[in-house]
Design a protein around this nucleic acid. Structure first.
Lengths: 391, 391
DNA sequence: TCGATTTGTTTATTGGTTGAATTATTTGAC
DNA sequence: GTCAAATAATTCAACCAATAAACAAATCGA
């Protein structure tokens, strides 16, 4: 009668779990950390930690270093750090006016960064992907010249990505139902939404709580939702479509077919039009100069954004909102409008106000998040990586 | 430097995991299931399953029964079912005009149900809790007379519940910062939001996907969010406050201080006022009779609800919405309005429409969900339960 | 009645953690 | 300068839980 229980068994995947636990403990430590400290932090025996660390060192995931300067008597510890020359993540991005690739190592250092400007909308998707493949190959060659092993690649696209890796629709790229396979050189590649990956990128740089929402303001408005330290993708991978939250039931019509969507109030096109300028940098300049049209436009956008953010907070009870994309640079003028509207509409604002932050990574957030998500795969399941490398 | 890794270690909690796996497999099976079938379904060896089942049987979580009629040769199997006389959950509820208690056994059968009508707003919170304690004691006595062991109690309240069990505010009960301790007879009790527990109750009866949102329409409008088969409570336990999603930035003012909240369009008071009737049942009667005022009011409420649901779906990518509370009985007249608005505003509606369902459990959903969440605790960690019972 | 078949248990083996003892390396005191 | 105290890391026997394979039990079918 085969009742589908969902979870398979776990025999001695205890080791896999503990391997990940040790690796994560070292990765989260700001300084080189000794085996004994890992033992204390995890609760595992020193003996066990030694055995696990041995595996991780021979598998090139950890490296021994000089320990942090210590005080008092006793045998000096051997410091452990995440290996800078082990696996690396290849982060890729195709966006409206550029494509890029970056290589990030396990320590989080950006080892290479290649960006090719150029309007991707002019090309058909397969041509754009072929160009991206060449860029990826160059980045990979650079990484391997450094002695790194590229563990995988993730591609960020501004669109709806299905669970099977098909790009359902990327309106600003003009893509529809585009299948993205592995890279030409055989490296495994997965695709994900740009806002999702940017959220992961912001999460990787730390300083953020385990629950937050990243709001990306570009031509469209998307959100990456991080709950309990993990990205929430939704049952089909289509979560975070914040741009079409209704602000006003009978507002201006939107390209989605409905009326009064957030995008019509706080999308890049609407704001630039209201401010009477052509680009985001021109808008920032006008706002800095105190031009009334610019300030009015930004105040209105902030109010609309504040309403949408209030909705998100009331629904998900996150206390932190990270503003990325063009919102990051415009936050100084958006902040008051957002805070006022959110303060009025968030039920729990009286106890704990919503915290607004500008994205730390700037325009590279999605690409870096893509590389980071490759590394996250290794960090979360080092046993699988070791098993794959062994033979 | 003690890097807080978050996850503690796991030694031979493999057993705990597999114990839960076996128990869940039996619980999910519609018919009595043999050890061999459990083995096949889980991937565990027959030997291992036998050992685990032994523990579960001696711990009164499983019972041997006649197996399902079988065909073909071979030694006849011994059927396993979840024990009807093992641990039971005590579900409690305090709502505006009644308080209740129910006892549910591990098989999901409702063994006892006690409801005391009466306006709870008239009492101060401690008096209401004392009355509830007496009701709980009666229910517990009935359960123990049946040979059941009450494993714990959960209380459903219509309000914001903090992680530490304090009821921050329950507007329709007139409660504010009420601390709820254990029951007078020493039984552990936890508190949770009514919509959250109702969502869990609906999840328990099955037939639902792993991701859905339960929308409860009472005086206020709340939502219970289920993601990946688990309730999402938010970082502080205050998720799901859907009633204050903005429908129209300059709509009628709301008691929350903002304008144009959903509650002002689809809350019970607004709808009854618009329809010119006094109660939900009168509204249903008027709608059945085809009264224009009632139909117009319900259509308008459906449209507002559809907008809010579209927001939820765009944000979380759930495909199923369960309508509970007074919405369950009014769904026939709300459905078209919701579906039209949601179809227009949900970005992915073209590929996969939003599925609307009426709640299956009716007004007892929260109370039953509360009892179910006690049992869920036992089902999810039978090892802890066995360890607690052993000495 | 016998073989085939399926269920459930017993037994030896293996993988992985633990705890205690052991070795290694430093600081500080006499 | 030597020795005791302290801390780090490794080695080794014991243990726990799952596995695989053999075995015992109970039924069907010829």
């Amino acid at each position: 009668m085969m009742s589908a229980t969902g979870s398979p068994v776990r025999q001695s995947s205890v080791r896999a779990h503990n391997l990940a636990l040790v690796l994560r403990t070292v990765a989260n430590s700001p300084d080189p950390i000794s085996r004994a400290s890992v033992s204390a932090a995890t609760g595992l025996t020193r003996a066990t930690v030694s055995a696990l660390v041995d595996d991780l060192v021979t598998g090139a995931l950890l490296t021994e270093r000089e320990p942090a300067p210590r005080t008092g008597a006793g045998r000096p510890a051997v410091g452990l750090v995440v290996a800078p020359d082990g696996p690396a993540g290849l982060g890729l991005e195709i966006n409206v006016d550029y494509r890029g690739a970056c290589v990030v190592d396990l320590t989080g250092a950006i080892r290479h960064r290649l960006v090719e400007p150029g309007d991707q909308r002019l090309q058909d998707p397969q041509a754009a992907l072929a160009g991206l493949g060449r860029l990826a190959a160059r980045a990979r060659a650079l990484a391997e010249a450094d002695g790194l092993t590229v563990a995988g690649a993730v591609l960020a696209v501004p669109g709806l990505v299905a669970a099977d890796g098909m790009v359902r629709i990327a309106p600003n790229l003009g893509w529809q139902d585009v299948t993205v396979g592995d890279l030409p050189d055989g490296l495994a590649m997965t695709v994900d939404n740009e806002a999702n990956l940017a959220a992961l990128g912001e999460l990787d740089v730390g300083e953020l709580p385990q629950d937050f929402v990243y709001v990306s303001g570009e031509i469209g408005i998307g959100a990456g939702i991080v709950l309990d330290g993990a990205l929430y993708r939704g049952s089909r991978g289509w979560s975070g479509e914040i741009g079409h939250i209704p602000i006003n039931s009978d507002g201006p019509s939107c390209r989605c077919g409905a009326r009064g969507c957030l995008e019509q109030y706080a999308g890049q096109e609407a704001v630039l039009r209201a401010a009477g300028v052509g680009t985001v940098s021109a808008l920032a300049a006008a706002a800095t100069a105190g031009k009334p049209d610019a300030l009015t436009a930004l105040t209105a956008a902030g109010a609309a954004l504040g309403m949408a953010i209030a909705t998100v907070v009331n629904l998900l009870d996150v206390r932190t909102i990270v503003l990325g994309g063009s919102y990051a640079s415009l936050l100084p003028w958006l902040r008051d409008g957002i805070a006022a509207e959110a303060g009025r509409r968030v039920l729990t604002a009286a106890w704990s106000p919503v915290e607004l932050r500008a994205a730390a990574l700037g325009p590279d957030a999605a690409m870096l998040g893509a590389a980071g998500s490759v590394l996250r795969g290794v960090l979360d399941d080092p046993a699988a990586w070791l098993a794959g490398r062994r033979p």
